[in-house]
């Protein structure tokens, strides 16, 4: 698809910013996301192409602003919903519960 992901040759993004001594993961959840992505792939929930397509279909603003692992969350969540393993409502509710717990 002619999605926002197809950035080759586009102008206007500015300089390539390089972080010196970049850590393997910036936050603990990034490692959880990486490993969850692999575990769901191994369980047969998606193949590489089914994994990539929901990222391409993200809201363009969200795509450009989000990190690599946030994009992965979007597609793993979408694929698990499409496979009938979880519902959006379940994820929303658990997420809200965890946020409430953190705020308390």
């Amino acid at each position: 698809m002619n999605g926002i992901h197809d950035v080759g040759g586009k102008h206007g993004f500015g300089p390539v910013l390089v972080e010196q001594n970049e850590p393997y993961f910036h936050e603990e959840w990034e490692g959880r996301m990486l490993s969850m992505m692999i575990a769901c792939f191994a369980a047969g929930i998606y193949n590489v192409d089914q994994f990539r397509h929901p990222i391409e279909k993200m809201d363009p603003r969200h795509y450009l602003m989000s990190s690599y692992y946030e994009k992965w969350l979007c597609t793993v969540e979408q694929n698990c919903i499409d496979a009938g393993i979880v519902t959006r409502e379940e994820v929303d509710a658990r997420h809200a519960q965890l946020m409430k717990g953190k705020a308390a």
């Binding site: 698809m1 002619n2 197809d6 080759g8 040759g9 990539r52 391409e56």
Partner: peptide
């Protein structure tokens, strides 16, 4: 609109 691996350029 489907998935493909063909860059526009």
């Amino acid at each position: 609109v489907d998935h493909n691996r063909l860059p526009a350029y």
